[in-house]
């Protein structure tokens, strides 16, 4: 595989984590414009852990996911009673606060005669773990997709579990869910924390993939894109957000000649797609149909 392709595929894999994070919240009925905040927190935390503290990559990624999960659960608490647009804008406000705080945050240590660490708006350079440990682009790609596969398996198991049913019930109707004995508040905090962990894990991978992060990468655009991926790809399955990312990053990267017009074409296509399929390509009906077509037909 050539480096360009590996780069694009790595990018798709990493961004899929934020898309899945927004998708998980969407299942519970919450529209978040702010998952990029946890992506950023994960990126900075994991980056600091390897570059400044010399942690191994696995521990650093786990730290990124954990810190993001904690932050997400903490934001989940005050925003618990917010719904719809109110929740969406509150998450947006929080994410922008995080981004602006990273623009102020400085934490640099001299390593080998060079200052390394977050340096406000100038970003955080030198997250060089994969070079220092001779991890090739292909190996890192395998790591990204290995983790992504694990997450997807987790989603599939969850969808079949009581937890998955409970999450969808909360998404359908909170009042009804609570009448059916579901601890709505606890479940929403749990979902927020899990979504935060997913985004944080993606962020940790992203920081090590690019070796460099800066606050402006984590602006509202990333947040709204993450949300849009689920809707474009489809809300019926966790593969939906992946399809959304694939269409956006994959398709757009592959039609380079269109460079100047790509958003004109893409924006129009997405708008038309959403008219035909308001819950995305792989919506619940499509998933149901695919499942039936996949399985051998049994005689009744």
């Amino acid at each position: 595989m050539d480096d360009y392709l590996v780069g694009v595929l790595s990018n798709i894999g990493v961004v899929s984590f934020v898309a899945l994070s927004a998708y998980l919240l969407l299942l519970t009925g919450a529209i978040s414009f702010g998952q990029q905040a946890f992506f950023a927190i994960g990126a900075y935390a994991a980056g600091v852990a390897t570059a400044l503290w010399g942690w191994p990559l696995a521990a650093a990624l786990a730290l990124g996911a954990a810190v993001s999960a904690a932050a997400a659960a903490a934001v989940g608490l005050p925003t618990l009673r917010l719904h719809g647009l109110y929740f969406a804008v509150a998450t947006l406000a929080f994410a922008e606060m995080v981004r602006l705080l990273f623009e102020l945050a400085r934490y640099q240590v001299e390593i080998d005669g060079e200052l390394v660490g977050p340096n406000g708006a100038d970003g955080f350079r030198g997250i060089r773990y994969i070079f220092e440990h001779d991890l090739g682009p292909l190996q890192f790609l395998a790591l990204i997709y290995g983790l992504l596969a694990a997450v997807l398996i987790g989603f599939m198991l969850m969808e079949r579990s009581r937890l998955g049913v409970a999450l969808r019930m909360v998404g359908e109707d909170e009042v009804l869910a609570s009448l059916n004995g579901i601890a709505v508040a606890r479940l929403k905090i749990l979902a927020a924390g899990l979504a935060g962990a997913l985004a944080g894990l993606g962020g940790g991978l992203y920081a090590h993939l690019t070796t460099y992060v800066e606050p402006r990468m984590f602006d509202v655009m990333l947040g709204v894109h993450s949300l849009a991926y689920g809707l474009i790809g489809g809300l019926g399955t966790a593969f939906g957000p992946l399809v959304g990312v694939l269409i956006d990053i994959g398709l757009l990267e592959s039609i380079r000649p269109l460079a100047g017009y790509r958003m004109i074409v893409f924006g129009g296509l997405v708008a038309l797609l959403l008219i035909a399929r308001p819950r995305g390509l792989l919506d619940e009906a499509a998933v149901h149909w695919l499942q039936r077509a996949w399985r051998p037909r049994r005689r009744p």
């Binding site: 709204v224 849009a228 474009i232 893409f266 129009g268 997405v270 708008a271 008219i275």
Partner: peptide, 9 residues
């Protein structure tokens, strides 16, 4: 989301 896509456009 559709209005966001048209924003890009």
């Amino acid at each position: 989301v559709s209005s966001f896509a048209i924003w890009m456009q």
